[in-house]
C-alpha cells in the first residue's frame, strides 16, 4: 500500500539554528502515528513543512505521493489540519462552521448539506446545530473541530496537540473518534504532550533537539528502553539530552 508520508533527511534551518535535523521516517496509510517531543524539539516546524506551509532547507518529503517543494497545492487538497486551538469560529453556528470549511475545500451544495447533516447526527449535535460554537462545552468543540478537519475526506489528517486542556474522559472519547477515522483508512498524524495518548498510537516517534531519537511501536519502545511506561521512555530520552 502507498505510504501516506515519506521523509528523507528532511531539514529546516533558521539562520544557524537547525530546527529539524535530517529527519527520516514514513507513515503507512491508515496508521495512527504519534509525533512526540518536548516544546521546541522541532515538532511544529516538521508539521509545517509536511503541510506545505514551510519550505524545507534540504531533504525530501512526499505527502500522499506529492512533493512538498513543488506540489503544495495538491497536498492541501488531501490533508486535513486541526490545531490545539480547535480552529472553529466561535461567532458562527455549528452548521455555519461545517459549511464554511466544506466550502473552502470546494464541496458543492448537495455535498455540503449531506456532510453537515451527517456530522451533526454523528456528534449528536442536533439540538445545538444552529447555536453559536462559543456556547458549546470544550469537549464538543473539540470533536466538532476534528469532524470539520475531516470534512473533505482527506487521506491524512494532522492533529497538533488536539487534546490540550481537555479532561481524561473527554480525551478518551476523542480517541474513539480517531480510531474510527483510522478504521475508515484515514492516516492520523498526531502530536501530543500526554504519554497515555502515546500508548494509543500504532507507532510513535520521539524528537529531541531537532532529531528523531526513537521510532517504534509503544511496546517496542518500552522493551528497548527497559521501562514499563511511555512516560519512562520519554524521561530517559529527555534526561539524556539534559546531561549532555
Amino acid at each position: 500500500m502507498d505510504k501516506a508520508v515519506i521523509t528523507n533527511k528532511l531539514t529546516k534551518k533558521f539562520g544557524d539554528f537547525v530546527a529539524t535535523n535530517e529527519i527520516t521516517f514514513d507513515v503507512a496509510q491508515g496508521e495512527i502515528f504519534g509525533f512526540l517531543g518536548a516544546n521546541g524539539a522541532g515538532k511544529t516546524t516538521a508539521i509545517r513543512m509536511l503541510c506545505g506551509l514551510l519550505k524545507p532547507t534540504s531533504g525530501d518529503a512526499r505527502i500522499a505521493g506529492f512533493d512538498v517543494y513543488r506540489q503544495t497545492e495538491q497536498i492541501k487538497q488531501v490533508i486535513g489540519y486541526m490545531s490545539q486551538k480547535f480552529s472553529l469560529y466561535e461567532d458562527l453556528t455549528v452548521r455555519e462552521n461545517i459549511r464554511f470549511y466544506g466550502g473552502i475545500y470546494g464541496l458543492n451544495r448537495a455535498d455540503l448539506k449531506a456532510k453537515s447533516d451527517q456530522i451533526i447526527e454523528q456528534l449528536n449535535l442536533g439540538s445545538v446545530a444552529d447555536k453559536l460554537v462559543a456556547s458549546l462545552p470544550l469537549g464538543w468543540k473539540q470533536r466538532l473541530a476534528f469532524s470539520v478537519a475531516l470534512v473533505h475526506n482527506p487521506r491524512i489528517v494532522f492533529l497538533d496537540e488536539p487534546t490540550g486542556g481537555v479532561d481524561p474522559i473527554t480525551r478518551r472519547q476523542f480517541w474513539d473518534m480517531i480510531y474510527e477515522a483510522a478504521d475508515r483508512g484515514t492516516t492520523i498524524f498526531v502530536t501530543t504532550h500526554y504519554m497515555d495518548e502515546a500508548e494509543y498510537c500504532n507507532r510513535v516517534s520521539i524528537m529531541v533537539d531537532g532529531r528523531i531519537k526513537a521510532l517504534d511501536t509503544p511496546s517496542g519502545l518500552k522493551r528497548s528502553f527497559g521501562t514499563d511506561s511511555m512516560d519512562g521512555v520519554f524521561q530517559i530520552l529527555a534526561r539524556g539530552t539534559s546531561t549532555k
Partner: peptide, 13 residues
Amino acid sequence: ETGTMEVLLVSPL
C-alpha cells in the same frame, strides 16, 4: 490570534 489563520493557510485557499 484564534489560530484559524493556520487552518486557512493549510486549506486550498
